[in-house]
Design a protein around this nucleic acid. Structure first.
Lengths: 119, 119
DNA sequence: TTTTAATACTACCAAAAGGTATTAATATAT
DNA sequence: ATATATTAATACCTTTTGGTAGTATTAAAA
């Protein structure tokens, strides 16, 4: 599945950081570990921080660390934040069956996606 | 979830056609029903046909109709065909946990997507 | 056999997403 | 205080995706 690279990167970052919980990670370190383009990675980290998934601290020895409330976070929440409002629930924009009278055959499949495992 | 518009359109088309099984649909008819941009819809229909999901017949009274073998088709197959090789299994490209030593926390979530309901 | 209603193909344009460069701001260590 | 190692912000370039235009091809109907 390809939601898009940004989402993939974000999950990669959070997944990686989850394996070293409570450790502060600099952008440079994450870049070396995860092979995500430096500059883009930085922007993403800033985004994740501003959305409350990470906490950032500037200056020497700074970096990024999980925000407290990440424990109750699941993948859907990450995607929804990054993709704007409710990307997962609005899964297939203007899905035909929701316009036409017949019941929606396909949408059921997407329901699973909304119950992803917690981080 | 937003795989991308092309995939969303494709699922919309197939979903709609599934509600009128065995009926031949012209591109113009589908355009009117589904509100997908005319030209782009045509291209997509051609693609779906060339990938074997639909059969096309040219000429007057032509159009598109389900191919025989669509009965065993699931959403993952459609996406994989449209997105190129194995888009679903390669879900998160170069996922960190597959590089690093620790087990992959996130990837489990995506497994669900591979077992979507049949069309 | 000519007209007409359809798909097929190819090339092109526009918008969005991915990625880079530069500079500013911040905070620690010496 | 100053140098240094970090994040923050903004503007820009590149690539991919979404969408359009024009023409060719096909086949049924008259």
């Amino acid at each position: 599945m390809i939601p898009n690279k940004t989402v993939a990167y974000a999950l990669t970052i959070l997944g990686f950081m989850a394996t070293r919980n409570e450790a502060m990670c600099s952008a440079e370190y994450l870049h070396q570990q995860l092979n995500i383009p430096r500059r883009y990675l930085r922007r993403l980290l800033t985004d994740l921080a501003s959305h409350g998934f990470l906490k950032s601290s500037s200056g020497r020895n700074g970096g990024f660390i999980f925000a407290q409330d990440l424990k109750g976070t699941n993948l859907a929440m990450v995607i929804n934040k990054l993709e704007g409002s409710d990307a997962i629930n609005n899964c297939i924009p203007s899905f035909s069956c929701c316009i036409v009278d017949k019941p929606c055959i396909i949408v059921h499949g997407w329901k699973h996606v909304q119950r992803w495992s917690k981080l």
